[in-house]
């Protein structure tokens, strides 16, 4: 497994774990840690990794900023349409993340051509 694949798998795992703990109504630190770690960095990192910027600090800054932006947009869309539900918002973000992770895996398998 390459480093890239490990990162992608970890993001997907954190997202799924967050959803599982949320759905199970789990209490306590494990749920809080999983959810905050995932939501503060996961969706953005999944998207940023697709671009292969080869610059860890830039990737990190963008990952957090884009994660917050995606959460803001998803939450606002639900609030503005009167259909707010934390579960739905979380599901949407995990879906976005998994789609980006899948695209990342597909690209890694498709070619070793990092710079299209």
């Amino acid at each position: 497994m390459t480093r890239d694949a490990i990162i992608l798998a970890a993001i997907a795992g954190a997202g799924l774990l967050t959803v599982l703990l949320f759905a199970a109504g789990a209490d306590g630190a494990p749920r809080a840690i999983a959810a905050l770690l995932f939501l503060l960095i996961g969706p953005g990192l999944a998207c940023v990794r697709l671009l292969r910027l080869d610059d860890p600090l830039t990737e990190l800054a963008l990952a957090v900023a884009v994660s917050l932006a995606l959460e803001t947009i998803v939450a606002t869309a639900l609030l503005a349409t009167g259909s707010w539900s934390a579960g739905a918002a979380l599901a949407a973000l995990v879906a976005i993340t998994l789609a980006a992770v899948a695209a990342g895996f597909a690209r890694a398998r498709g070619a070793g051509s990092p710079r299209a």
Binding site: T18, L21, F22, G25, A26, D27, G28, R31, A32, A35, L36, L39, L40, L68, E71, T72, V74, A75, T76, L78, L79, W84, A86, A89, L90, L93
Partner: peptide, 11 residues
């Protein structure tokens, strides 16, 4: 909204 999502997701 984003903060509510984080709060709820984190339990």
């Amino acid at each position: 909204g984003a903060a509510a999502l984080l709060t709820e997701a984190a339990g």
